[in-house]
Design a protein around this nucleic acid. Structure first.
Length: 188
DNA sequence: CCTGTGATCGTCT
DNA sequence: GACGATCACAGGT
């Protein structure tokens, strides 16, 4: 079942766990989302913190159901799904199932676990870059299908220094394709 | 298993 | 001028 834009017009804390197990394809390449994180405007770790709009975070304040793509550490791209105003879900990892050869070529590895385990790896495998910022998620090149049954685990987010203790990371229990097991200490 | 470090640059102060 | 919602690799335990 395809996800409609209205799916995203809710609290990011409701949407994020429901995205675990959903299928994300970009031009037919992708797989099952197994790890996400929630960010919103009252969250010190979020780009939208305090409701401050900038050129970079404009998409976060745009309509729900669109992509927010930004550059991380000057090197990588990160993909988010915009929810209610000023909130978004960071897509951190997926289990590759469609277009494995394309992902392997883009990533420079055949190791399935390394194709899309981490937000930077995922965007590289799916061919996501700055031109995808602001695009609607219910139109090509995106295709999103609702999750079936998925057991979701919760834990602290990764790689942040502010509000690092908040348990707003959601992952599929037992998945080998997450960027890092829940409950482990290291941030990469 | 773990920790440390360099790469690299746009964004915000 | 400082700092990342990261990754790959090196080296020690």
């Amino acid at each position: 079942m395809k996800l409609r834009r209205s799916f995203f017009a809710r609290s990011v804390h409701d949407v994020a766990p429901e995205l675990v197990g959903a299928t994300l394809l970009v031009d037919g390449v992708g797989g099952r989302i197994v790890e996400v994180e929630a960010y919103h405007h009252e969250d010190p770790a979020a780009h939208s913190f305090g409701g401050r709009r900038t050129v970079r975070n404009a998409s976060m304040f745009g309509p729900p159901g669109h992509a927010y793509v930004y550059r991380s550490y000057g090197i990588h791209w990160c993909l988010n799904f915009v929810c209610e105003e000023g909130s978004a879900v960071l897509i951190r990892a997926l289990e590759p199932s469609h277009g494995l050869d394309t992902m392997a070529a883009r990533r420079g590895t055949d190791e399935p676990r390394l194709l899309a385990a981490g937000p930077g790896r995922l965007t590289q495998a799916l061919g996501i870059a700055g031109e995808h910022d602001g695009l609607p998620l219910d139109h090509p090149p995106f295709a999103l299908y609702a999750a079936g049954d998925a057991e979701v685990e919760v834990g602290p987010r990764i790689g942040i220094t502010k509000a690092a203790e908040l348990p707003w990371r959601y992952a599929e229990a037992g998945s080998r394709f997450v960027s890092r097991p829940l409950g482990s200490r290291r941030s990469s």
